[in-house]
Design a protein around this nucleic acid. Structure first.
Lengths: 329, 329
DNA sequence: ATGAAAGCGCTAACAC
DNA sequence: GTGTTAGCGCTTTCAT
C-alpha cells in the first residue's frame, strides 16, 4: 500500500480512505489512487485489514457431509444470504467425524472469522464442541443448538405428517412406514408426524411400522421383497419410506411383480428429494428437505447476531419441508 | 497474549516462544505459560501470526461442483495431504460459475492463503482466471493448467482404454461406445482410449459410436430402448458408457427385455464410480475416477511449490483411473 | 480533503 | 532462557 501511496503522491492514510470511505476523498485524488492500484496490481491484505479494523467479512461453515446434496444446498443458501450482506462463506468438511469438526471449529476461531455455521455430528458421545465456549458467534444448522445459541432445522415431524397425509389424500387406507435407525431424531420425528396424520383419520386409516437395517437401496429392496411375498389381501396400498434411497430400492423390488403396479396398486413416497428420486425410472414422490432455506435462515440469524449484538435474541427456527408429487403416488 | 504473559509472569516474547519453539524455553516456564493459556482460554490469532511471520498454513480450494462426489473425494485427498504437512484446507464452491470462481480466487488471494487449489470451470469463454497473475501459488486440478503452473488430471484416455479392454477381455466382440457432449475433453478422451483398445485387436473387435443428448439416466434409457429394438443379430454384446448415470439408465431399459440378460448377453461398463453405480439393482462395472489421488497429488505439488520455491519445476501429472469389476460385465 | 501517528496481535531478531 | 523491540499491512482517530 506504501507503493500505491507513493505512486499516487499521497499518504498511506489517503489510500486507505479510498478503499474504505471513497466519499471522504476528493474525486481527483481518488481517481489517481485507483489508477495507481490498477497499475501496481495492488491486492489489499485482508488479514491486516481485519486485524486493524476488527471486522472480518468471512463466515466459516463446518459442513458434516458434502456428499449429501442437502448440505450443499445449505451451503448455497448460506452463500446467497451472506453475499447479500457483503460477506463470504468458506466451507470445511467435517466428514461426519467429531475430531475434524473440532479441528475446523478451532481453525475458524483462530482465524477470527466473523461467524461460524455448524451442522454438528449427531453422535451424542461426540459433542465436545458444545462444552467449549466459542469466542465466535456460532449458529447451528440442521439440529437443535440448545438454549444459548441460534439454530435452524427442518421440521421433520411436519414432513412425516405431509407424507402420510398425501397418501391418505390420494385414497390410501392401509399404510406402512418403512424406516430404520429410529434412534436418530430425524427418522423418529418423521414417524411421529406420519402417525399424527393417521391419528387424525379416527381409525379410517391404519399404519404399521417396518424396521429396516439402514436407509440404503439395499434395505429398501429387502422390504420390497417382504411386501411382495404378502398375500394380496394383507398388502398395504401405501408406503412412507424414511428416505428416498430406501424408497428407491423398494420400488425396484416391487415394480416387476405381477398385479402390483405403482402407483395404481401401491403408492410409495420417499423423503429427501435425493437426486436419485427424480432420475429413477419411476420418479419418486417425496418430501424435499429445505436445505437451501435452512442455510439462508441460519446465515440471516448469524449476520443479525454479528451486526446487532445488543438486540439479538437467540431462537430456534423450524423450516417447513415441501411435498413434491411425482409418479410414484 | 499480553494477559497470558502477565498471568504467567513472563514477557510477551516468551509466550510467543512456547507457541512456536517450545524447545527453546525452560520446561518449568513452559508449563507455567501453558497453564495460563488454558486458564485464560487464550486462542492465538492466526491473522496476526501470519501477518508477522509471513507464513499462513491455510490452503484454499475452489471446487467446481460439490454435488459431484468425485470432487469431494478430491477435497478429502487434499485435506489428507495438507494435514501431513501441518496445513489446513478450506473449500469454496464455485458451482460451475466462472464469476463465483473469480470471486473466491480473489478472496483467497486477499486472505494471503499459503496456496490455492483450483478445479476450473471448463467453459473456454470463462477462463478469465488464466489471464490474471495470481500472487498466490496455484495448482490446477482435473484439467490442464497450461505450461506455467502445476496441474493434475485423471488420464481419461487410459480410462477409456481400460473400459474397452475389459469388455474385450471378457470376450465381447461387437461394442458400442455410448456418450454425448463430445466437445468436452474428458468424454472425447475416453472415446479415443476405447478406440485405441479396439484398434489393438486388429479388426477382431468392432465398435460403433452412439451419440446421446447428455450423460443422464434419461439419455441412457433412450439408448437402451434403441438397442433393444435392434434385431438380435445386429445387437452389440458390449457397451462402454461415457458415464455411470448413462450406463444406469441403459441397464434399466435393457434389463427387462426377453433374451437380453446382463451380463450374459450384453455387458455394460460405466465411468465415474458414481454412488448410483454400486447401489443399483445390477451393480455396475465401472472406471473409478481417481479423485482422491488427484487431490493428494495436486496438494503435494502445491506444498512442494510453497516449501521449495527455488528448486520447484512446474509439471502436469496424469493419474491412472481404476477398473472396478462388478456384476454388469 | 489530506497527512501523521498510534495501534491491531503477533513473530523474529537481537540483547542480556 | 528470557526480555526488548522493530516491524507485518492495514484502519482510524486526530490534527492541519
Amino acid at each position: 500500500m506504501d507503493d500505491v501511496a507513493r505512486a499516487a503522491g499521497v499518504s498511506l492514510g489517503t489510500v486507505s480512505h479510498v478503499l474504505n470511505h471513497p466519499d471522504r476523498v476528493a474525486p481527483r485524488t481518488r481517481d489517481r489512487v485507483q489508477r495507481a492500484i490498477e497499475e501496481l496490481g495492488f491486492v489489499p491484505d485482508r488479514r491486516a485489514r481485519s486485524l486493524a479494523g476488527g471486522a472480518s467479512s468471512m463466515i466459516g461453515f463446518v459442513v458434516i457431509d458434502l456428499t449429501n446434496s442437502y448440505f450443499v444446498d445449505m451451503a448455497r443458501g448460506a452463500e446467497e444470504e451472506a453475499n447479500l450482506a457483503g460477506m463470504n462463506v468458506v466451507l470445511a468438511n467435517s466428514d461426519i467425524q467429531a475430531e475434524k469438526e473440532l479441528t475446523y471449529l478451532h481453525l475458524f476461531d483462530e482465524e477470527r472469522v466473523a461467524g461460524i455455521l455448524l451442522t454438528p455430528v449427531e453422535n451424542l458421545a461426540d459433542q465436545a464442541w458444545r462444552s467449549r465456549e466459542w469466542r465466535r458467534r456460532l449458529v447451528v444448522a440442521n439440529s437443535d443448538g440448545g438454549a444459548d445459541r441460534c439454530s435452524v432445522a427442518p421440521d421433520d415431524e411436519l414432513g412425516g405428517y405431509l407424507a402420510a397425509r398425501h397418501l391418505i389424500d390420494v385414497g390410501r387406507r392401509s399404510l406402512v412406514f418403512a424406516g430404520g435407525l429410529f434412534h436418530l431424531a430425524p427418522v423418529a420425528n418423521r414417524l411421529r408426524g406420519a402417525q399424527r396424520a393417521v391419528a387424525e383419520t379416527n381409525g379410517a386409516v391404519r399404519m404399521t411400522t417396518v424396521t429396516t437395517a439402514g436407509l440404503r437401496p439395499k434395505d429398501g429392496r429387502e422390504v420390497g421383497a417382504r411386501l411382495a411375498d404378502l398375500p394380496p389381501a394383507e398388502r398395504p396400498d401405501g408406503v412412507v419410506a424414511a428416505a428416498d434411497l430406501l424408497a428407491l430400492g423398494l420400488v425396484q423390488a416391487l415394480a416387476g411383480q405381477p398385479g402390483l403396479r405403482i402407483p395404481e396398486d401401491l403408492s410409495v413416497i420417499g423423503y429427501d428429494n435425493n437426486q436419485a428420486s427424480w432420475e429413477s425410472a419411476i420418479p419418486l414422490t417425496t418430501i424435499a428437505q429445505p436445505g437451501h432455506e435452512v442455510g439462508r435462515t441460519a446465515t440471516r440469524l448469524l449476520i443479525e447476531e454479528i451486526r446487532e449484538p445488543g438486540t439479538h435474541r437467540h431462537q430456534c427456527i423450524k423450516i417447513e419441508p415441501q411435498l413434491i408429487v411425482r409418479s410414484s403416488t
